[in-house]
Amino acid sequence: MSDDHVYTTLAEGHEDDARWAYGTGFEDPLHGVSSAVPDGVDRAELAALCLVLADDALVGAQRLAEWTTRAPELEEEVALANIGLDLLGQARLLYARCGQVDGTERGEDAYAYFRDADDFRNVRLAELPNGDFAFSIARLLVFASWRLAHFERLTASADPVLAAIAAKGVKELTYHRQYAAEWVVRLGDGTAESHRRMRAGLDDVAAHLGELFEAHDARTEVLAVLRQVTTAAGLPLPAVPPQTAGSGREGNHTEHLAPLLTELQSVARAHPEATW
């Protein structure tokens, strides 16, 4: 396999972006941004959008955290943990905005720790077990590409807070996509076994693409990214089946979400209102 980054055009225009937004830099993305909801913005719709984006990020971050002590190399363990921290940071900002605009004034902990699985609105892909490293990388590539396309649109949101959150998220998600693309190429263009596993991971993830495209209109651009990366990796781009299972956006989740939340929420529920 060549050391050339054959997918590098994915990152063009972002060469100066910080790689670890919540690991090395602590600039407040909302500094100087008015929290007032602009006239003409539907508060309920804004709250619902912030909630689903936050749930996607929180559940995705929890799955990435599970790679701690289990990643194939220490460097990848650190990388996956930092990507998870980026998503956790996005979730915190989005939950906080949700509480500001939905009339409840709830804090981020209320959304993250004190809702049951039926109340979450994340896409089902985010909650699936990690599987092997190839599956997790395939999921990260798809999830980051899809979320990046969404956040790029949201930088023009009429709500200044959501626009600022999206602008910061674009920088983070660009790197998440780049990191995953590197590994897809490395595994797909590696040994026969790594090629087999990477292809299987992509096939498994593809089964859930229908829900993503149902929830957002970025199908064409996301598939273009996936096609570019899989071609460089010597892998076929799996077909996207129609969405047949229930949507996580409607609270229809797999059996895997409830155990994930039980672990995530255990300390907060055992010690409500505790301070550290």
Rank of each mutant, 00 (worst) to 15 (best):
L93P: 01
Q243E: 02
S247Q: 10
D217Y: 14
R147Q: 12
T220S: 09
R121T: 15
V185E: 06
L173Q: 10
E221D: 14
T24N: 10
L64C: 03
A270N: 03
G25D: 12
V33Q: 07
V52Q: 11
E66T: 05
E127T: 05
A138R: 04
T262C: 04
W183V: 00
R139Y: 15
A11E: 05
A117L: 04
V59R: 10
G248Y: 06
L226R: 01
D39E: 14
E182N: 13
L260K: 02
V267Y: 14
H216T: 09
G60I: 07
S145C: 03
E75M: 12
Q228F: 11
D132K: 04
A158M: 12
R92E: 08
L187Y: 12
I165R: 02
Y111F: 15
R139W: 14
S266T: 10
L46T: 08
A167L: 12
A11H: 14
L235F: 07
A166K: 07
A81K: 05
R153Y: 08
E214D: 14
L187K: 01
I137W: 06
A18P: 07
P241G: 06
V185M: 08
S157V: 07
A180M: 12
R63Y: 14
R63A: 13
A167R: 15
G25C: 04
D102Q: 08
A166G: 06
A134Q: 13
D116S: 13
A166D: 06
L94D: 02
P259S: 11
A144K: 01
N252C: 07
L51K: 11
L53C: 07
F213K: 01
H176P: 00
V37E: 01
Q100T: 05
E221N: 10
